[in-house]
């Protein structure tokens, strides 16, 4: 136990603190290579848990939806840490709700609610309240009203900012009290991922990628 605690203290002290605001671009940010070098201080079991959590929470690391569902089930059954399970579930709930909002707009068929798939914790409630604007979830997720408004107004950038900032602040809040333990490492890396995702946003590249996808779709 002692060894682990001291190892986490060393790892956490070696990492530069995150900026107070997600939009603060002046703060020095670690590159992926630098972060991986720091994370090499983790033992193999912790590294594997971290990889598994990232594999579930990062789109880039998810191979397919079916595989992703299996990974989520496996991860939640194997995680014997309620704090980390809550971290994963919280993000999956946001993702499921946003997916439901998008799916409802794209799929107006009568079977849309029945066809919808997502994280089981909120999916059944969403299906029951499919016609309700906020799926009657606003009391549990206060941000949902604003997200819905931005989505309906087609303000995709502001919606993305809202969702990223929501996770950023949530992780900061739950990270209070975890400074030199594995939970602190997970929170740090997940916040780094959010920061990285925002920092990599590039309008030109996005347009190029969009055009490429449209071309692919047309050729198929």
């Amino acid at each position: 136990m002692i060894n682990s605690q001291t190892d986490y203290a060393m790892l956490m002290a070696s990492l530069p603190p995150h900026a107070l605001s997600l939009w603060d671009s002046k703060n020095k940010r670690l590159s992926r290579v630098q972060l991986d070098r720091h994370l090499s201080l983790l033992n193999s079991k912790d590294k594997q848990t971290l990889d598994e959590i990232q594999a579930v929470l990062l789109w880039a690391k998810m191979s397919s939806i079916e595989h992703g569902e299996k990974q989520i089930e496996q991860l939640l059954s194997e995680l014997n840490n309620s704090f980390l399970a809550d971290v994963v579930i919280w993000r999956l709930q946001i993702r499921t709700i946003m997916a439901a909002i998008r799916y409802r707009k794209l799929n107006q068929s009568a079977t849309a609610a029945a066809d919808f798939r997502g994280y089981e914790g909120v999916t059944s409630h969403i299906k029951k309240n499919w016609q309700s604007d906020d799926f009657t979830l606003s009391h549990r997720f206060p941000w949902l009203k604003e997200a819905n408004q931005l989505f309906n107004a087609n303000e995709t950038v502001n919606l993305e900012k809202l969702l990223l900032n929501l996770s950023w602040q949530h992780y900061e809040k739950i990270g209070q009290g975890h400074y030199f333990d594995f939970e602190a490492v997970i929170i740090y890396v997940l916040r780094w991922d959010i920061n990285d995702r925002w920092a990599k946003n590039d309008e030109k590249k996005a347009i190029q990628q969009f055009e490429k996808l449209v071309e692919q779709a047309l050729t198929n």
Partner: peptide, 17 residues
């Protein structure tokens, strides 16, 4: 022992950065 070990490793970590 425990206190110095935690603080000591944090010091080593800080030196890396």
């Amino acid at each position: 022992i425990m206190g110095c070990a935690v603080a000591g490793q944090a010091a080593i970590g800080a030196m890396l950065d």
